[in-house]
Simulated scan of single mutants.
Amino acid sequence: MKKLIYLFALSISFLACEGPQGPPGLPGSDGGLFVASAFEIEINFNAANNYEYIENYGFDVYPSDVVMVYISWETDNGQDIWRALPQTTYFNEGTLIYNFDFTQDDVRFFLDGDIDFSILASEWTQNQVFRVVVIPADNVDGLDLNNYNNVIESLNIQSLKAQ
């Protein structure tokens, strides 16, 4: 009989486990899932902009966040192929490097290398498409950041905002 009363009291205590709602989660999180922000941008590099372009995010980026940039490198059977920056190309005249850096406020895209950028054909400087992914630091461990598709799938990014 004591066992039966004990089991009854125990089952009631599990049914009555309700309390006030806990405090809200950290900024940038959604029910324990960190939300990554991403956008796509098309850039023309030229002497007038010193072969660089700076873009403000338009959303909060925290000091611990990591920013990755990918360039649309080629298309295969209608499928875009993305490569992580920096990306290097070799010419007889020298080396071209697509590169980036970032702060908490913006991301800077720039051409680097020892080639004279003014001799590059427009295919290397005009209409260059980049994708920027801001990754909360908690999501970086074990993630292959060089693989664009892996990053997008792991962070569950459904669509990209145009900048």
Rank of each mutant, 00 (worst) to 15 (best):
E123C: 00
S37E: 15
Y51A: 05
S154P: 01
F102M: 09
F102P: 05
Y98L: 11
N56H: 07
W82S: 13
I43Y: 02
N46H: 11
N99K: 06
V35M: 05
N92P: 11
D106T: 06
N92S: 13
N99A: 13
R83N: 11
S118F: 00
E55T: 13
D106S: 15
A121T: 00
F117M: 11
V134F: 05
I41H: 10
A47E: 14
E40D: 15
T75E: 15
I71G: 01
A48L: 15
D144A: 07
T95P: 00
W82P: 00
L120F: 01
Q158V: 12
W124H: 05
Q128N: 07
I97H: 14
N149M: 06
D80C: 07
P63I: 09
A47H: 03
N139G: 03
I43Q: 03
E123S: 09
I43T: 02
S72T: 08
Y70C: 01
N146K: 14
I152R: 10
I115L: 04
I43D: 12
I97Y: 03
F39K: 03
G113Q: 04
V67S: 06
N49G: 01
V132R: 12
N46R: 01
G58P: 04
V35H: 06
G94M: 00
A137K: 12
N49H: 11
F100W: 02
D116V: 04
Y90M: 05
D112A: 15
N149V: 05
W73E: 13
T75P: 07
F100M: 06
A137H: 13
F100S: 04
N77G: 04
I54A: 12
V66K: 14
Y90F: 02
S72M: 14
S154V: 04
S64F: 04
I135W: 01
E55N: 11
L96Y: 00
N49M: 00
F130A: 04
S118C: 12
A48K: 14
F130W: 05
E52S: 14
D101I: 09
G142A: 05
N149Y: 12
N146H: 11
F130N: 03
N44C: 09
Q104F: 06
Y62I: 03
F39G: 10
D114S: 09
A36P: 06
W124F: 15
I115Y: 01
S122D: 14
I152Q: 10
I157M: 04
E74M: 15
V61W: 08
I71R: 03
E55M: 03
W124Y: 15
D112I: 10
S154K: 07
E42H: 08
N147Q: 13
F34H: 13
A84D: 01
T88L: 14
D76P: 03
V35S: 07
Q126M: 09
W73L: 14
D114I: 02
G142W: 03
R108Q: 14
N92Y: 12
N44W: 13
I157W: 00
N146A: 05
N49S: 01
V107I: 11
F39A: 09
D101F: 12
D114N: 13
A84L: 04
D65S: 06
G142V: 02
W73M: 08
N49L: 06
A84E: 07
V35C: 05
N139C: 15
N44T: 08
E42G: 12
F102C: 07
F130M: 08
